[in-house]
């Protein structure tokens, strides 16, 4: 919905001041996203895929940009392999390279470490932390992995059945729910142990 792929049934979404339902093309070049549920063409090599997306996003010096991303994301040895032949972890890194190809000001990540082994998942989280700090990029992360959210996020929005139930920093959520980690906060929200004002009810 934030990228304009789905229209909201009511209300509106504005990114960089533009309504995403009608004006999305003014801002899509300043955003990007990564999701394990969206693939890149399998028969194209990693380099070919990245070159196509670099051109779609109007990246100048695409060869240099691809080389830098490949270096950063440890993709150099896979650049000339078909994307479909990569493992889940390698595909995630390629998808991240695609998501970063235009140096987005707003990066949307949908379960970026889903189905990754713990080592690769940790590597991806560390990379995202560094990227956010170095590029001052806003990251909007959707995840059910509360340890990941706790590590990466300054602000947490909790949704339950499509409704917003909380919006605070991790520290504020711990204090309100009298918990020491987001996993427990999540369970409290999911199981109805906190009410609308985040008071503990049981």
């Amino acid at each position: 919905m934030i990228m304009g792929l789905i229209e909201p049934t009511s209300g509106s979404i504005r990114v960089f001041g533009h309504d995403m339902a009608h004006d999305r093309h003014r801002v899509l070049g300043r955003m990007n996203f990564e999701s394990p549920y969206v693939d890149m063409p399998h028969r194209l090599t990693v380099r070919q895929n990245l070159r196509v997306f670099a051109q779609l996003y109007g990246v100048t010096d695409s060869a240099g940009k691809i080389a830098r991303l490949a270096e950063d994301l440890a993709l150099v040895e896979f650049l000339d392999r078909p994307s479909g032949s990569l493992s889940a972890g390698q595909k995630t890194r390629v998808a991240l390279a695609k998501a970063l190809i235009n140096d987005p000001e707003l990066l949307l990540l949908d379960e970026p470490t889903a189905s990754l082994d713990p080592d690769t998942a940790d590597w991806v989280r560390a990379y995202l932390e560094t990227h956010r700090r170095d590029r001052n990029c806003t990251i909007l992360l959707a995840s059910h992995n509360m340890a990941e959210v706790e590590r990466l996020c300054d602000r947490v929005i909790m949704l339950k059945q499509g409704s917003l139930v909380d919006d605070a920093s991790p520290a504020e959520l711990f204090a309100r729910c009298r918990r020491s980690n987001l996993e427990d906060v999540f369970l409290d929200v999911a199981r109805g142990r906190v009410n609308a004002k985040n008071r503990v009810v049981s």
């Binding site: 304009g4 093309h25 899509l28 063409p41 399998h42 779609l56 996003y57």
Partner: peptide
């Protein structure tokens, strides 16, 4: 159809491509 077979259509529709 190549875009649908390769599940790439969302990538394109969420890119600046009009």
């Amino acid at each position: 159809l190549e875009e649908m077979w390769s599940r790439n259509i969302a990538n394109l529709l969420m890119s600046p491509l009009r």
